[in-house]
């Protein structure tokens, strides 16, 4: 998304859960109302940029109750060298985005064999 366009767009930060399980980091973000075609997940230099456009928000003219937040979902994470950038996967299902970040083999804990001399 171009910077100029972004400046004019209201964004909210999606709530998320981050956990590590078996050498894989999972990033789960709640993005209700975002369609797969309106979701953009990309790596820009050291940053993982996630942007999801909401298309389900009604026009405000007839709103009787208005509690849901307005704006697109956007979150930027810094990805360090321990993450394998070639193996990032993203899956969107019923308003939940799950990003899978694999750790590089080199950073995984490993056991060093001790040789008897």
């Amino acid at each position: 998304m171009a910077t100029q366009e972004l400046e004019k767009t209201a964004t909210v930060r999606p709530v998320g859960t981050i956990w590590e399980e078996g050498g894989v980091i999972y990033l789960r973000l709640e993005m209700p109302g975002v369609d797969k075609s309106d979701l953009d997940v990309r790596i820009e230099d050291d940053q993982l940029v996630i942007h999801g456009k909401r298309s389900d928000l009604p026009k405000d003219a007839h709103n009787v109750v208005r509690e849901r937040r307005r704006g697109d979902f956007r979150q930027v994470y810094t990805v360090d060298d321990t993450v394998d950038r070639e193996k990032i996967e993203a899956n969107l299902e019923s308003g939940v985005l799950l990003v899978t970040l694999h750790l590089k083999e080199a950073v995984k804990p490993r056991r060093i064999e001790i040789k008897a001399g």
Partner: peptide
């Protein structure tokens, strides 16, 4: 959960965010 209620000529529509439910 947060809801929006919208009134249309012929109906009311309630929208509720329930991601992952």
């Amino acid at each position: 959960p947060r809801v929006d209620i919208v009134e249309y000529e012929d109906r009311f529509e309630l929208l509720c965010d329930l991601p992952g439910v």
